[in-house]
Structures are given as C-alpha cells and as structure tokens.
C-alpha cells in the first residue's frame, strides 16, 4: 500500500541575498512518521522549517503540509502545524505565567474557550509543569521553558509538528524526557514529526526516516533502518594484536577487499567489503602471516559514519 505523504517539498528554494539557504529541495515525509533532518550548522535546516510554517516565502518551488500549499493556503498550513522554533525556551513571554502563555496561544490557535482550560491542564500535567503553572515563564528553568514551548506547539492538536533542535539547550535528563515525549506522542496520536537536529544519536534513536542536508541541498534520504543496512555493505572491524602493529597493518593492507586501515594505539580499524565472505579470509591471512590476534570484533555501524561520509561528499 502506498504511504500517505504529510509533508511534500517540491523544488523549494530560498536565498538571503547572495546566499542560497535552501536549494531546490525535494522531499516527502510520510504521515505519522518521525522524520529527522540532519545537517551541520548553517546547512539550511531552520530555513526549511521556517518555510514550511510559512514564516518565510520561497523564491522558487513550494511545499504542501497536510495537503495545504504553503503559498496558496498559508493560514491553513499554520492551523495544522505546531512549531517549536530554534532556542524555543527563549520564545515565551517572560512576564506572563506558564498558564498565561498557553492561554494566549490557545486563543490565537482558535482553541475554544470551553476546551482551553482542560487542554492546558492536560498538557501541563503531561509535561509535569502543572505545579508551576502560575510561575512567570521567565522564572522557569531552561528545561521547563523548553517543555512549556513544546506544550504551546501541541495546544491545538496539530497534524504536523515542526521541531527545530528540540533538545539542543537541554541537559541529558531533560533531553531524554523530550525524546520519550515525542515517541509517546507519535504512538498515541499518530502526529507527523519533522525534527531538525545535528544530534546524530538522537535522530538515530527516535527518527524512523532521515535526510541529510548540507548547503541547502538534500544529500541523502531514506528510512533509518535501510540506511543502516546500506552501511552494512561494508563493515568495520577492530583487530587487536599482540606484538608489532605495523607488521599486522602491512599484512592487512595487502588484501584487495580491504577498503581502509587505520591504526589506533594497540589495534587496527579495518573496513572490508562484502564482510560475510571476507571476514574469515582476513582472519586467515593474518594468522597465516604469524600475527597473534587478541581481538577480532565487529564495530557497530552508526549513522555518524554515514553522515560524515555524505557530508564529505561521498553521497550516493
């Protein structure tokens, strides 16, 4: 069955004077997915989110959010999206109470007066902020402000949540709580999450799909699991030896299926192609050459490897 697309980006382009921030971007985000847009600082992630929530206008191309075109129906797009801007903990009204901030935005999002108090209480309790509801937003801790900003984004039950670096300013405990929250919301309500991040571990943990962006261009996109599989076409092994490491290195380098060798204190990091076929061959070659192997272990392939490879220009 064909997946229903919730965010469709069609040749989206945005420049600021001479700088191209987003360059003919094409992307589909399926409904109900947790999508991670990965990239270094200045890659165009925040501009993409600002374009999707109609804060910025593209110079070329367009996008559809929940079937609404960002150029043709910007108000509808804003109705169906919840936005957590970059450094969201600084985007609350500091002199207003936590409750007051949510009440104000709830009214702007058109939540009815009958539903608003219950909705605010539900969210503040969910985020463990109900006890702090009367505190001024400016007096809350960074983590609490971030959670309050997340409450604001969720108030009107949006179909799509655009989260720009949702855990960037948080300590590990608060960041873990926000990640759990995203996963639980995704499972509970089936909302689509579009998350900007440069935190690879985070994306790997919670996103089911990712795209890597640099200089405004999408370099790679796919399901997180598929990308991991792709990584496994090559495998890195850590080989610890007793004795002369340089001798072992020269033996390893002589094998034609070895892609790269890197020496690290007492071990070698060796990348080989077709690992199922070649890992036993490599071990045999080393043993035949008289190398004493202490450890021969698979290194876990992470998105970081792929990310670094893609950013360096090795996208395929």
């Amino acid at each position: 069955m064909e997946e229903s697309v919730e965010v469709r980006i069609l040749g989206l382009t945005k420049n600021f004077d001479q700088i191209v921030a987003v360059d003919h971007m094409e992307l589909n985000v399926p409904e109900g997915s947790i999508f991670g847009l990965l990239g270094p600082n200045g890659a165009g992630k925040s501009t993409t989110v600002r374009l999707l929530c109609t804060l910025l206008k593209p110079v070329e191309g367009t996008a559809e959010v929940a079937d609404f075109d960002i150029l043709q129906a910007p108000v509808k797009v804003r109705e169906v999206t919840g936005v957590l801007p970059e450094e969201a903990n600084h985007t609350l009204y500091p002199a207003m109470s936590a409750y007051g901030n949510l009440e104000y935005f709830g009214r702007l999002y058109g939540v009815s007066e009958e539903d608003l108090p219950g909705r605010i209480q539900e969210l503040l309790e969910f985020m463990e902020l109900w006890e702090r509801k009367d505190d001024k937003a400016g007096e809350l801790s960074t983590g609490n402000r971030q959670r309050l900003a997340l409450c604001r984004a969720l108030l009107h039950g949006p179909k799509v949540l655009l989260l720009d670096e949702p855990t960037a300013a948080l300590d590990p405990v608060a960041a873990k709580r926000v990640r759990e929250l995203i996963l639980s919301l995704s499972q509970k309500s089936g909302q689509t999450f579009f998350i900007n991040s440069h935190n690879l571990a985070e994306v790997q943990r919670i996103c089911d799909r990712i795209a890597i962006i640099d200089e405004g261009r999408i370099l790679l996109t796919g399901k997180t699991a598929e990308l991991r599989e792709k990584l496994q076409a090559q495998q890195e092994y850590r080989i610890r030896v007793a004795g002369d490491l340089s001798e072992a290195e020269s033996v390893v380098k002589s094998a034609d299926y070895v892609e790269s060798v890197q020496s690290e204190v007492d071990s070698l990091l060796v990348v080989i192609t077709d690992p199922i076929e070649n890992n036993s061959r490599l071990m045999r070659t080393l043993l035949d050459a008289g190398v004493k192997i202490v450890e021969f272990a698979e290194e876990e392939a992470t998105l970081e490897d792929l990310y670094l490879e893609v950013i360096k220009g090795g996208a395929s």
Partner: peptide, 14 residues
Amino acid sequence: EQNTLEPLLATPLT
C-alpha cells in the same frame, strides 16, 4: 526583542 515574534507569526493569525 523578546523573541516572541516567530511563534506569534506561526499562529493562524492573518
């Protein structure tokens, strides 16, 4: 100045 413009403009206000 208080960085609230972005969330305000992201609401469905015309």
